[in-house]
Amino acid sequence: MFFHIVLERKIQLHPRYFGPHLREKLVSKLMKEVEGTCSGRHGFVVAITGVEDIGKGLIREGTGFVTFPVKYQCVVFRPFKGEILEAVVTMVNKMGFFAEAGPVQIFVSNHLIPDDMEYQAGDMPNYTTSDGSVKIQKDSEVRLKIMGTRVDATEIFCIGTIKDDFLGVISDPGAAS
């Protein structure tokens, strides 16, 4: 689920940027530092949408670096248990398959794949129904439900299922081509 929230962070700036473009430099440094990171509490920071407030800088003794407390608005993405996501399959093995929904990695183990799909080993390992109409392989897009999340300080990992109504392959790239 996506959230638009305000976060705060302290940014250190080298003295050489102190000049007319200090603010722009500060914002670009903030983006570089923050976007794409993951915190267990808020989830993945997808994008910064605006800077609300830049506080008074504090010169650090000895180095000349200045620390600015910056308040910024950003879009974060945090997966929740029970949430439905669309994801791209990245790897298939006999234990199940891995998929990615943006930054988040999801593992679907084989007992959470519908009973009528069976693992086919080979060059392109996949899960296929007995009549061959549905196939899950690398780069397939699947709609899945998150069954559990493991949240570390800097990492979120999910377990998903496609064993439910309206879950499974959305469009098969093999069939499209």
Binding site: K94, F157, I159
Partner: peptide, 14 residues
């Protein structure tokens, strides 16, 4: 299954 990411081996995908 939560450890899956760490367990996966890049030599044989198991």
């Amino acid at each position: 299954a939560f450890d899956a990411l760490q367990l996966i081996s890049y030599t044989d995908d198991l």
